[in-house]
């Protein structure tokens, strides 16, 4: 009985994970911007956090939640992880997690070329 419950829990967990991955793929195809895609120096507002429940809960509790503005400060020398600035402190997360965070209202570093990433600019 316990086993069956455990197995079914594992299965639903796995299915949920799969679903999330597929959703992530679709979302990125449809053009939603991920925190992990932003160049260093950009600012954005978190729109959605889509990681596994454990990490997601930690990120939410650390204040990475919809509506919070974040800035990408730098990448580690080997490209991963990245350093974020939010709520007056610095947080470092891996690219895997950063790709699970959908952002909006992106502002590039240089104010002169400030235009939301993804918005079409005249050629």
């Amino acid at each position: 009985m316990e086993n069956v419950r455990n197995d079914s829990r594992k299965l639903t967990g796995f299915l949920a994970h799969l679903l999330k991955m597929v959703l992530n793929k679709i979302m990125s195809l449809t053009g939603s911007t991920r925190l992990g895609d932003l160049p260093v120096g950009s600012r954005a507002v978190v729109a959605e956090v889509q990681c596994d429940r454990g990490v997601r809960r930690r990120l939410l509790e650390l204040g990475v939640l919809p509506g919070t503005s974040v800035e990408v400060m730098r990448r580690a020398p080997l490209g991963d992880p990245i350093e974020l600035s939010l709520r007056g402190y610095r947080l470092s997360i891996r690219g895997d997690e950063a790709h699970g965070i959908v952002v909006r209202d992106v502002v590039a570093e240089d104010a002169r070329v400030a235009s939301p990433v993804g918005a079409t600019s005249p050629e």
Binding site: V55, L62, Y89, L91
Partner: peptide, 12 residues
Amino acid sequence: GPRPTLVLELPP
């Protein structure tokens, strides 16, 4: 255990 991750504060 759960997939290991890095969620690390970089203190001043």
